[in-house]
Amino acid sequence: MTLFLRRTFPLIITFLFGVAFAIQYYVPHPVSEAALTEVSVWLRIILGFAMILGIASLGQVHYAKIRTGVAGWGYSVVVYVSMLATVGVGLWAGGQEEGTGFGWIYAYTLLALQGTMFAMLGFFVASAAFRAFRARSKEAAVLLLAAIVMMFGRVPLGEYLVPAAGPLAGWLLNVLNTAARRGIIIGISLGGIATSIKIIFGIERSYLGGRE
C-alpha cells in the first residue's frame, strides 16, 4: 500500500493529468474550458503550499547553520530576525502597506537593499571588464568587438560620435543575436517537450524523491 501511494498513485495522476491537459489545449468545448479554469485554481493553491514548503526549507537550512556555528552563522540569525519581524509587522498591519510599519519596512529596507544590490553590479561589471575582458583568442576578440559596438550603439554619446554605431548595434541584436537565441529557444523547447513526455509516461521519476 505504501509503495502504491508513494510511487504508483503519483505516476497514475501524472499520466492522467498530463495527457488530459495536453489534449485540453486543442479542445475549446465549454467543459474543457471549465476543467482548465478549475485546475488552474488548484495549481495556484498548490503553489501557495509550495511557498510554505520553501519557507520551512529556508528555516531548516539556516537553523542548521546556527546550530553548527559555521562561518557566517550570524547572517542566518539576520535571516530569522528579519523574516519574523516582517511577518509579524505585516500581520499586525493586516497586510496593508499605506501608512503602516509594513509599508515602512518595504520602502526603507527591502526597496533600498534590493536597489543597492543591483546598483553595486555596475561597479563589479566595470572591475571585471578591466580584469577579465581580454582578447586571448579569436573568439574572445569577436566577443570583445561585439561588446564594444553594443556599448557604443546603445547610448546617445556613442551614436553622436559614431552615427553608424546605433544601427550596427540594432543589426547585431536583430540578426546575429536573434539567430543564436532562436536556436537556443528551439533546443530548450524540444528538451522541455521530451522531458514532459518522459514524466507523463513515467520514464523520468526523479520528482518522486529518488526512492524506488
Binding site: G122, V125, A126, A129, F130, R131, F133, R134, A135, L144, A147, I148, M151, F152, R154, V155, P156, L157, G158
Partner: peptide, 23 residues
C-alpha cells in the same frame, strides 16, 4: 539617466581597451 549611462559605458570601453593594451 541616459547621460550617466553614456559616461559609464565609455568608462567601461576605455577600461577594456586599456586592459587589453596592458595585457
Amino acid at each position: 539617466g541616459m547621460d550617466a549611462q553614456s559616461a559609464t559605458h565609455f568608462v567601461i570601453i576605455l577600461l577594456i581597451l586599456l586592459c587589453n593594451l596592458f595585457y
